[in-house]
């Protein structure tokens, strides 16, 4: 049996929406971008509850979660961060994309969000950042397992 390195397997990304809003133009486009960059994207309907997002991340063993928020649903993301940690998924990186006021962005970063993408973010930036975060997540998980 040959041994493959982790890097030969595409990053796995959960693209989802939490809270109340249901506009999915942005999340669809981002999902397509990530796919076209060779990643595997698990795509969901909007309105996922926090514990469901955690469950999906766990079952699908994703590296990165992308939360799209066009209204104020990003306010719930700190709760997601806590729930991920509690489920032993601390290595999973979370990015938020959409309309996020500056003040709130700082709060999200404090809560452990890796990156906030605003409207107008370039594809290459999104793809590059997600790929780097995925690699980081895998490394961290390996370390967790080794220790």
């Amino acid at each position: 049996m040959t041994s493959n390195s982790d890097e030969t397997f595409p990053p796995r990304v959960l693209v989802t929406k939490i809270g109340l809003d249901g506009h999915d133009r942005g999340s669809r486009i981002v999902a397509a971008f990530l796919r076209d960059a060779g990643m595997e994207v698990i795509y969901t309907s909007p309105w996922q509850e926090i514990d469901r997002v955690v469950r999906l991340a766990l079952e699908e063993d994703v590296d990165v979660i992308g939360v799209s928020s066009l209204a104020t649903d990003h306010l719930l993301v700190p709760k997601l961060m806590v729930a991920l940690e509690d489920a032993g998924l601390g290595h999973v990186k979370v990015v938020v994309g959409g309309i996020v006021p500056d003040d709130d962005e700082a709060d999200l970063v404090d809560a452990g969000v890796s990156k906030v993408f605003h409207p107008g973010s370039a594809r290459d930036d999104i793809v590059g950042e997600v790929a780097a975060l995925a690699a980081k997540a895998r490394r961290e998980r390996e370390q967790e397992n080794a220790s």
Binding site: L34, D36, A37, I42, T44, D51, R55, L56
Partner: peptide
């Protein structure tokens, strides 16, 4: 082309998530 994929089957199975 890219080798990537959008995996959406479980959207239709979401009632069983959890």
């Amino acid at each position: 082309i890219s080798g990537g994929a959008i995996l959406g089957d479980r959207i239709r199975m979401s009632e069983h998530t959890g």
